[in-house]
Amino acid sequence: MRLFLLLAVSGVVSLAGGLYFQEFNLGSSELRFIADFGFGAMTLLGSIVTVVATVQLLFGEIEHRTILPILSKPVRRGEFLVGKLLGAWLTICSFVAILTVALLLALFIREQQLPELTDETLGADHSVSYLGVLVFAGVQCFRLMVLASITAFFSGYASSSMFAVFMGFFVWVIGQLRGSLVAQWGEGFGQSVLKLLTLLIPDLRVFDLGTQVIEGAGVAPISIAGLVCYALVYTVLYGSLAALVLKHREF
């Protein structure tokens, strides 16, 4: 909880940073620059919250043995896992929601102030799609759900919280860099093998909608539906693997 609050505050502070560190803004519109900070906080801090919260919620129960009285009640291990994953997801969604509200507020306030400013930003596009921000936030919730189910898989298997946290972050990094790894570190036969291996890990980069969503462009409902399907497939896969691991775990 403390960590959650700390990260939520960091996210909001990072957003405030977007308002006050305009000297790093090169060429893009001010509102987009603020959105960049908000989106960055959602994905980076959101991933940290996801891994830590999932490990805490699932492996924490195993580590502190609070799982023993729970599983001695008429609760199936699969039900326990689903409950924990939903709990983790609720935490993640709350976190994303806090940052989304903060971002929308920041954008709204700045948008109201902009006409009063000098002409220095003239030419840049001042319009901002609030729907785009909501779409981005919604898609992040699904991305983080995938990360949560992967972390749950490792939490079910782990014998220390460090292992679960490390593996969660490891998969996150690999998932983010999946495309780059193939492009940079392989050629010929090696690249083919690498391509095959990268299929083992979900591609988390597909959820990086980029800032074009804030301009209201390219938000095709069919593509969003595709992303949601992609997230659900991987959540079910890793959720099932986590259930399998938990089913065989001895307490």
């Binding site: 043995r65 609070t66 023993l68 009285p69 001695s72 009640k73 008429p74």
Partner: peptide, 29 residues
């Protein structure tokens, strides 16, 4: 689970969530 419903278990140490109150713990179980 139907069999476990008929069993009460007292663990060898109090493995309960410290942030709950007594009433909340019983409500949870």
């Amino acid at each position: 689970p139907a069999v476990r419903r008929r069993i009460g278990y007292l663990p060898d140490a109090p493995y309960y969530h410290k942030f709950l109150t007594g009433r909340e713990l019983l409500r949870f179980f």
